[in-house]
Computed example of a mutant assay.
Amino acid sequence: MNNTINNNFVGYDYKTITTDSESVSMYLDGFTNFGWIVDDNIQTNNINGKVTLKFKRDRKILNKTELTRLQRHFEACMLELSALERSKASDATAWSLVVGFVGTAFIAGSVFAVTNDPPHILLTILFGIPGCLGWLLPYFVYKSRIVKKTAMVNPHIEQKYDEIYGICEKGNKLLKN
């Protein structure tokens, strides 16, 4: 039995990234363009929608400085992309909460009017109607704000994807040199 042992030592850099499960494929595809390979010794764990990825790369890779610069630009673009995606819902949530709080204030006014001695029924009705609307409208406000914000943000998201693809392409070309 002839076992050959490869005596060529390879030192590795290691990198760990925790991201949303929706971004895993982008990180896996992107980091391969900067010389990183998935570390097979460690499995990814999915906790609360977050995934931890482990990578390794040869320490003596050619063009390491430029690849690292491109990789940092890639990571910054991915963070911006994530922030743009979150901004869709955060704007809509803020608007619907404001409408709900205003509705709650009107309901509180209605309750105070009815519990007054003597009760002010007309005031209760006047405060109750906008209060009920303030509790019914947040869903529709949320949906309409999501549509508006998505239409506003999607061109920026597409632009960011194009930038990411350009960065990955440059990294891939450096690896092939």
Rank of each mutant, 00 (worst) to 15 (best):
M1Y: 10
M1D: 08
N3Q: 13
G11W: 03
G11S: 01
Y14Q: 02
K15Y: 03
I17E: 09
S23R: 06
V24H: 09
D29Y: 03
D29C: 01
N33Q: 05
F34C: 02
F34I: 01
F34S: 00
W36N: 01
T44M: 09
N45I: 01
N46M: 14
N48R: 03
G49N: 07
T52L: 00
K54I: 02
K56M: 06
R57G: 11
K60G: 01
I61H: 03
I61W: 04
T65N: 07
T65D: 08
T65Q: 06
E66P: 08
E66M: 13
L70E: 08
L70F: 08
Q71D: 03
F74W: 14
E80L: 05
S82L: 09
A83R: 10
L84Y: 13
A89F: 13
A89C: 10
S96I: 14
L97C: 14
V98N: 09
V98P: 05
F101P: 01
A105F: 14
G109Y: 14
G109L: 11
G109K: 14
S110R: 07
A113E: 15
T115N: 02
P119W: 09
F127C: 06
F127Q: 02
I129R: 08
C132M: 13
C132H: 10
P138T: 04
F140R: 01
V141Q: 07
V141I: 10
V141E: 05
Y142A: 03
S144N: 12
R145D: 04
R145Y: 05
I146M: 04
I146W: 02
K148S: 14
T150D: 05
A151T: 06
M152H: 00
M152N: 00
M152P: 00
H156N: 11
I157A: 00
E158D: 11
K160Y: 04
E163Q: 10
Y165N: 10
I167A: 00
E169V: 09
E169I: 12
L174Y: 13
